[in-house]
Amino acid sequence: MRPEDRSLILDTCVRAVFHTILLLSLYLLLSGHNQPGGGFVGGLVAGAAFVLRYVAGGADEVHRMAPFRPQLLLGSGVVLAALTGVGSWLAGGELLEHGKIDLHLPVLGDVHASSTLAFDIGVFLVVAGLVLTLLESLGDVAETEEQAAAEREAGAGTGAAP
């Protein structure tokens, strides 16, 4: 997106809420087992945060905030979810059988970590990765085409002027 097309107000607002939304998505992910939420919704919300960045600043902006191939998220999400399933075998359970770890940590106190959370993180990563991929691919194409259209118009304009 060309700098002159950006809207300052939109830019500022988006920057302000971006991290909040990301945090919200993490909250949704972590609390999903007991309250509305979960990896899927969390991933969508995280994705929505990037959609906002995209609307405000275009694909470059998204890429700056997430400077890696979105496929990494997709791949690692699938692997993590699948490995969680396989991990149950190590604990002697069936595929994808949930397991709990109760830890007593000094500061945080009792922590109940469930293998289902790891699975949910996998879901989260895939969903977020999907949205990022979409932004990168479709957004890219749309922008290229828009630019091309603009150039055509500009070309036609200069051709007609003299």
Partner: peptide, 22 residues
């Protein structure tokens, strides 16, 4: 171990479906 039944279904009861869907 979860109160959100929908989420428990997704990540536990029918986690294999979810694995497929992701």
């Amino acid at each position: 171990g979860g109160r959100n039944v929908v989420n428990v279904i997704l990540v536990d009861f029918r986690a294999l479906d979810t694995l497929g869907e992701i």
